[in-house]
């Protein structure tokens, strides 16, 4: 059994979800154009990721495993997450208006975000218990948010820089992300984590 602190750091920095695991690249390149949007999106991802890891953990261990239905995992998880996001959106809209205003518009985008589904699969594959998978998803979500915000700040600068037109847009974003990933490689080996 791994130390919860190591699970957190591993998910947050060493195996950063965007730069090392390549999950959630669509919002990373699409949404991260301004620091405020990146913050809202990051918060929504942390929130949904934690909820999704709870609910899929319960579904997997209470329904799928005892009834020998593990082969239905892919279909069940994606439908569970899609309906969860819908419910959360309606609930926030009715009861927590400020929270909804801060991150409501990002919630539908998250449903088909491979980061959420990927994290639930990874938690199952790693055989995490309930607490570990909570820590794992919070750490991952935080890693997502930090990288999104940093990258949004870089992109705001890139928009103003004089760049050759054929490199402008996606190519320079990819190259900037590559340099960030190179920097994040420096975290591998931290506390013996790989």
């Amino acid at each position: 059994m791994k130390d919860p602190a190591l699970i957190f750091l591993g998910a947050f920095l060493v195996n950063n979800i965007i730069l090392m695991r390549f999950l959630g690249l669509c919002p990373f390149f699409g949404v991260s154009t301004a620091v405020e949007t990146a913050t809202g999106m990051g918060m929504a991802v942390i929130f949904v990721m934690t909820l999704a890891s709870w609910i899929t953990w319960i579904v997997f261990n209470v329904v799928l495993l005892p009834f020998n239905l593990v082969f239905l995992r892919t279909a069940v998880f994606i439908l569970t997450i899609a309906s969860l996001v819908q419910l959360v959106e309606m609930f926030l809209k009715k009861y927590y208006r400020t929270l909804y205003n801060a991150m409501g518009i990002y919630l539908p985008l998250i449903t088909t975000n491979c980061a959420i589904l990927g994290i639930t699969f990874l938690a199952i594959d790693n055989k995490f218990n309930f607490l570990d998978s909570t820590i794992f998803s919070i750490g991952t979500g935080l890693g997502f948010m930090v990288v999104m915000i940093t990258f949004a700040a870089i992109k705001e600068r890139l928009d103003l820089a004089p760049i050759n037109p054929s490199i402008k847009g996606y190519p320079i974003s990819f190259i900037a992300a590559g340099l960030m990933a190179l920097a994040f490689l420096g975290f591998s080996g931290l506390f013996g984590l790989t």
């Binding site: 730069l19 090392m20 390549f22 037109p165 054929s166 490199i167 847009g169 996606y170 190519p171 320079i172 974003s173 990819f174 190259i175 992300a177 590559g178 340099l179 990933a181 190179l182 490689l185």
Partner: peptide
């Protein structure tokens, strides 16, 4: 570093630039 994660970003960035 080409087979590590940063290489993926750099390769697709350069390919996209050449396509553009």
């Amino acid at each position: 570093f080409m087979i590590l994660p940063p290489g993926a970003f750099l390769v697709i960035g350069v390919m996209k630039a050449l396509i553009n």
